[in-house]
């Protein structure tokens, strides 16, 4: 089983992308690593770009 999932946060609105859970509503399966999320991904909460997410410790 894959471990070491990370959490990424939108710097604008605080939205969290948790690799463990993915974003099924956006077509991103649970377990999808941040680097495998498409480059044109935008924050579903505020529209900011993938480049404006940063990894955080929760």
């Amino acid at each position: 089983m894959a471990t070491g999932f990370k959490t990424w946060q939108c710097e604008n609105c605080g939205f969290l992308y948790e690799e463990e859970f993915g974003l099924p509503a956006e077509g991103i399966a649970p377990g999808t690593r941040w680097e495998d999320v498409a480059d044109d991904f935008i924050c579903p909460n505020c529209g900011f770009a993938k480049s404006q997410f940063s990894m955080i410790e929760v």
């Binding site: 604008n12 609105c13 605080g14 509503a25 579903p44 909460n45 505020c46 529209g47 900011f48």
Partner: peptide, 20 residues
């Protein structure tokens, strides 16, 4: 209801600070 892309908190740079 799902999906629910409600826009009550706004969007973009001015999205509600207190939403969480």
């Amino acid at each position: 209801r799902t999906p629910n892309r409600q826009v009550a908190f706004g969007y973009g740079a001015h999205v509600c600070l207190g939403q969480h």
